[in-house]
Amino acid sequence: MKTVRRIFGTLLIAAAIFGTGVWTTFGLAADVGGGERTVAAAAHTQPERTQEIDPGDADEPIYRVLGIVLFVWIGISLYLFFIDRKITRLEKRIK
């Protein structure tokens, strides 16, 4: 039960990290003030870039965001990989 709780806790932490990542990536940029409910769909007034990304421009913020998201994923995948290895070892020992 302890392991299950630990795994569930870790998944929750991963969710929190993922949520924070998404929040900082998308949420902060959207802080347009107010917060009051906008009923009309005409509220789509974000002055965002809607053109294609310039592949030669390394200063594009999207590359930084991509780096952060990939970094988070690498962390999660390493964690999952090590758990998988531990479980395989335990299964072999039980057999």
Partner: peptide
């Protein structure tokens, strides 16, 4: 999944165009 997931992440940021109204935020 260890290969598919990073490939998808790269696609979402570099291959997909920005959304018409929301721009890059629409990638969510």
């Amino acid at each position: 999944v260890f290969i598919a997931m990073p490939a998808s992440i790269i696609l979402t940021f570099l291959y997909a165009p920005p959304a018409e109204v929301l721009g890059d935020a629409g990638r969510i």
